[in-house]
Design a protein around this nucleic acid. Sequence first.
DNA 1: TCTTGACACTCAAGCGCTTTAGCGAGCACC
DNA 2: GGTGCTCGCTAAAGCGCTTGAGTGTCAAGA
Lengths: 343, 343
Amino acid sequence: MKDIARRAGVSESAVSFALNGRPGVSEATRARVRRVAEQLGWRPSTAARALSGEGAATVGFVLARPAHTLGVDSFFLQLVSGIQEVLAERHLGLLFQVAEDVADECAVYRRWWAEHRVDGVLVADPRAADPRPELLDELGLPAVVIGGAPDVRHPGLSTVWADDAGAMASVVDELTALGHRRIVHIAGLPDLAHTRRRIATLRAEAERRGLGEVRSVTTDYSDTEGAAVTRRVLGGSPPPTALIYDNDVMAVAGVAAAADLGFCVPQDVSVVSWEDSALCRMVTPRLSALSRDSAAFGRTAARELLALLDGAPARSVGVPVPRLTGRGSTGRAAPAGGRRVRE
Amino acid sequence: MKDIARRAGVSESAVSFALNGRPGVSEATRARVRRVAEQLGWRPSTAARALSGEGAATVGFVLARPAHTLGVDSFFLQLVSGIQEVLAERHLGLLFQVAEDVADECAVYRRWWAEHRVDGVLVADPRAADPRPELLDELGLPAVVIGGAPDVRHPGLSTVWADDAGAMASVVDELTALGHRRIVHIAGLPDLAHTRRRIATLRAEAERRGLGEVRSVTTDYSDTEGAAVTRRVLGGSPPPTALIYDNDVMAVAGVAAAADLGFCVPQDVSVVSWEDSALCRMVTPRLSALSRDSAAFGRTAARELLALLDGAPARSVGVPVPRLTGRGSTGRAAPAGGRRVRE
DNA sequence: TCTTGACACTCAAGCGCTTTAGCGAGCACC
DNA sequence: GGTGCTCGCTAAAGCGCTTGAGTGTCAAGA
């Protein structure tokens, strides 16, 4: 920068003004400085910038999930790639960290805050009794909660949310229209806010419609638990005629487990996956799934965070309701007692 | 820090010495300073540290892959989580970026370098005629190439490599022992170095054994291409009796495609997936797969980078040869002409 | 002619830390 | 008793940038 100042024949401050688009230099000088800077391939040192109060030009993202459920999910990489896309436009960096659990995640936020490492954070997987909004509010760290319900208690946080309730209602609509009355929802982690929302909505919808045998079972999202729960519920009497899985991995594992028990999909039991991916298109039958655009979700979240960093007030925005892509795994409910069971 | 100095009754420099374990203060003072710092919940500002020449305490990782192949692969999230694990021990941050292509990736390195944003980088997916080692050498940015062959031309870069050649040889061993002589390798992106290594090894092994009909077909790793190629090669006459897929996604898609054509796995055709994951265990039959520990791969790479940052000389380390986990998708080769084809 | 003010720019302080040079005290040694 | 050394510490500069206060110039207005 000193070099630029020297070569352009002005002071360092002038260079700073010129390069940051601030008033205080003539257009001629600005252009000259810009040219010299370009020639020299100059880029501001983020460290120096951060030190003089400009912020770290970095956004943080912590993922707190058990390690074994990490790789399975296609959702997060898509999400991150969407986030990236928006951040890259402004040359903001994404600091990524994997944490053990929420407590660990909070520690990371504290550290980042103390070290002035990030200007804001994206919070994933909001939970029941989540300590994170509280903490971030306290630290004054701008944050966007991804997938959370609008949270009136923490007006400082923005929220980007998918309408799980609406989506669940539409799935139940679809299934009841096909004659299903015994539905089991193989849900995800019980602590997650969206898991609770889905469960609550399912129960409400079932009551509204007078459906008797409808329930949710929580899992850890793994194929193992998905298969185990499937075996368990299909062993009940009478077994459900429709299964809703909270992710694609469990849905696929569930179909395999069902097949092992002699249940045909969709003749004996219909299956819906709450997550669309290549997986759903690779198995036989292809799975009917709720498609959402995870990358777009990430983009929206990142944009909200940028707005927050620009000083805009926090707000809550929704992303489109995921829609059900019907494929071969959903069909009319089997008439009561008509299911085939392997002897 | 000023506060600490005041409360501990020493100068700021003494605090710096004490906290960084440098000589120049008595043990008594050091302990006192440490205590006060802890009390105050002090953490050094990364920005200030970086500015005074300590480095950014951050490692960069760029992923340059077509967006649609991103979410599918379980490999990367596992890898990153392994990397993280090691970096976290030293409180190093991981700056993550998704790039369009290698040129874009190079631009990111240049920017990071100019902005002093990272102390080193991890380079994934080494390619044939890869410009990145050259660039990183030129910039003097410490780097570890993940999955690259040891590169003698760039002695500044460390390399962490998996023995693809050995693994391929063992797979061919296994298949020929089962009587397979017509093998098709559905490979990944043709530019990737490890794709080339696998292809070359397969050819060499085939020649060594006098196997006639052995070839590799490159793809973009997607389920779509995996299925398409499978259909194409199984339509040949005579069709191969064994298929080796370079990732799990294609293998699963391939099995489905084979089933569509009336080929039974493993009676008509054996399938091996070069990537083990929940996916391989979810389909019927369960897929025989090469298992490697991606997280451990990431940990090793991160450790190598740390060593580099500590001033150790660059070196090349191997990770264990992935071993073939036999499951239901491999069996004896069908006798020539004995395959069933749907009429 | 003198004031006023806008404008283009410079000066210098300061962000929070590291680090080199230096200083005084205490000690050993000849 | 002086010299030379080590030890524990302080003072101050500097990393690269931003920024508020200040300076000089020129043109318009009184």
